[in-house]
Computed example of a mutant assay.
Amino acid sequence: MATFRVKIPLGDEIELSEEMVKTLIAKTLGYSIIVSSAFVKLPQLIKVCASKSSSGLSFLGAFMELLAVTFNTSYSLAKRYPFSSWGEAPFLQFETASIAFFILWYSRQQKQALTFLFTYSLLVFLLVSGLVPITVLWYLQATNLPLAVAGKMIQARKNYINHHTGQLSIITSFLLFAGCVTRIFTTLHETGDKLIALTFIAAAAANFVLVAQIFYYWKNTNEFLLKEQKKKTS
């Protein structure tokens, strides 16, 4: 196994094995993702709340994405995986739940929005309470693959039908794509869980589709948002 010599400030050298270097990289990337995840969906939230519009956004797509990240949190917590391998999930849960709530709220479905918030809160409590057997949590985690892909593809289909991406945020979409790509490495190195790694591979591919659509429909989206703004001010 290869070794690396690193010079420390006091002038001495320390020897690091290849495995130690990989672990250090994985931990650094893992905690970097956790820190950035606290802000990754804020651009999307700000865009929706500032415009008071959720046009172009799919509630079903956001809800399926929310279920995927929720199952990941409960499963990783139950398995006691290193926090650096899944710590961004709780932040993404809160942000995705907020986006789903405002999609309903700004679609003039306030009662449905409040019902969703109450029901989802009960679900989270049940999953992290320890009452759900680990085997059940494993099967829920297994559904992350179709959920991660289907949720994004529902949004992608809506973009294709509309010929624009509405209030979808380019910053959030790109950061989610980059985060999924990084998580493939950290998951394999820190947990060795191929099921979770496969989920991140699928999610990365699905997020890439959304990023590509944002650029492809850029002109159409700007024209749509301009028309929407004029309607509100007229």
Results as ranks from 00 to 15, higher is better:
residue 54 S to W: 01
residue 89 A to H: 07
residue 174 F to T: 08
residue 170 I to P: 11
residue 231 K to H: 10
residue 211 V to A: 03
residue 23 T to K: 13
residue 205 A to H: 01
residue 221 T to Q: 08
residue 149 V to L: 10
residue 129 S to F: 12
residue 195 L to C: 10
residue 77 L to Q: 01
residue 44 Q to I: 03
residue 124 V to E: 07
residue 37 S to I: 03
residue 125 F to H: 10
residue 101 F to G: 03
residue 209 V to G: 02
residue 189 H to D: 08
residue 36 S to L: 13
residue 6 V to H: 08
residue 52 K to R: 06
residue 160 Y to G: 04
residue 9 P to F: 13
residue 143 T to S: 12
residue 27 K to C: 11
residue 214 I to M: 09
residue 174 F to D: 02
residue 22 K to A: 15
residue 221 T to W: 01
residue 103 I to V: 09
residue 212 A to S: 09
residue 79 K to F: 01
residue 140 L to H: 04
residue 96 T to F: 13
residue 95 E to Q: 15
residue 206 A to P: 11
residue 128 V to H: 01
residue 215 F to Y: 15
residue 29 L to H: 06
residue 50 A to R: 10
residue 128 V to F: 03
residue 222 N to L: 15
residue 186 T to E: 06
residue 169 S to I: 08
residue 124 V to R: 06
residue 16 L to P: 02
residue 223 E to V: 12
residue 102 F to S: 07
residue 150 A to Q: 08
residue 68 A to S: 13
residue 155 Q to H: 01
residue 116 F to N: 10
residue 12 D to E: 14
residue 58 S to K: 06
residue 118 F to P: 06
residue 107 S to P: 12
residue 115 T to N: 09
residue 220 N to R: 05
residue 56 G to K: 02
residue 25 I to F: 09
residue 165 T to C: 03
residue 172 T to K: 05
residue 43 P to S: 02
residue 32 S to N: 01
residue 57 L to V: 10
residue 131 L to K: 04
residue 192 G to N: 07
residue 70 T to C: 14
residue 12 D to T: 15
